[in-house]
Amino acid sequence: MKTKDLAYIALFAAIIAVLGTLPAVNIGPVPITAQTLGVMLAGGVLGARRGFLAVLLFLVLVAIGLPLLSSGAGGLAVFAGATAGYLYSWPVAAFVIGWLTERVWSRYTVVWGVLINVLGGMVVIYLIGVPVLAAVANLSLWEAIVSGAWPFLPGDAAKAFIAAAIADQVRRSYPVIERPQRELAGR
């Protein structure tokens, strides 16, 4: 891994941290935050491997006690709390988004970006976050969906769109994901 890749990874970990300073909407056990926007961007701008590592790095910074989560939470406690599943899902989400983005890189559009963000940034996060919420907070799966997925749909859909729009613009002005080798060879 080149130093350039490390710098990009550090940058996106910092972006996710700074997005946490935007006010979050507390609507029950799981807050609506701007930080998942950073997770979507990490995957969409950096690709699978670096996006995954950027989110992982962010979680390491949280774990060593920096209060970087949107609720000002930090430390090891959050990795055992009700929202732990969402945190664990973030690196996976960034990886899925990055992997899919790399697949469609040469014909990436906002529409592709939205589809990818919905799949990687919403479906993946809910699939991991909701069952963990149900287990930790002692809710039924249905209650967990009502409190841990349903209220997020509008906000997450908006974030999926914004992240796709940004990723598309960055791709055109400063592409960070490199073209797959075989595409270059075919030219």
Binding site: T3, K4, L11, I15, I166, S173, Y174, V176
Partner: peptide
């Protein structure tokens, strides 16, 4: 947002070259 992000990516690249 996008210009800021591009600036930051360039900054990160410059720093990595310096390192």
């Amino acid at each position: 947002v996008t210009p800021l992000l591009v600036q930051l990516l360039q900054m990160a690249h410059t720093i990595s070259e310096a390192l």
